[in-house]
Design a protein around this nucleic acid. Structure first.
Length: 108
DNA sequence: CGCCTGACGTTGC
DNA sequence: AGCAACGCCAGGC
């Protein structure tokens, strides 16, 4: 992968998230070497909104909460897609979130 | 070129 | 245990 920018790196990680799994901004940021840049990950997701290959709906915050759902169109679409993948959502929160957590670190 | 914002995380109170 | 403030980095205006 070419490091054209922070966003591109984030996309590469998010795109590799398997169906039925989720990931957190912090983990992605950490993999990128910027554990403190979790905000940037979410920010990148916003730009990733244009890329259908980037399942931003599989990316949630460390709490397992669908914080970015409001940025979707419509917001309920995110939960809908997650449930469609077998991920149960309750109160905008991923059930058994920790077990569904996917570690991109194993790729490296 | 400088200030503000932002889909987070961690630590402190 | 719940809430507030700070930090960090990049993009937009």
């Amino acid at each position: 992968m070419k490091n054209e920018g922070f966003f591109e790196s984030v996309y590469e990680i998010v795109k590799q998230i398997p169906r039925g799994k989720v990931c957190t901004y912090g983990i992605i940021a950490e993999v990128l070497g910027q554990k403190s840049g979790a905000r940037m990950v979410g920010y990148a997701m916003n730009a990733a909104h244009d890329l259908p290959d980037v399942p931003a709906h599989r990316v949630v915050n460390r709490n397992g909460l669908l914080t970015g759902r409001h940025h979707f169109n419509p917001p309920e679409k995110m939960q809908e897609m997650l449930e469609n993948e077998g991920i149960k959502i309750t109160k905008h929160q991923v059930q058994n979130f920790k077990s569904k957590l996917w570690n991109p670190t194993e790729l490296y």
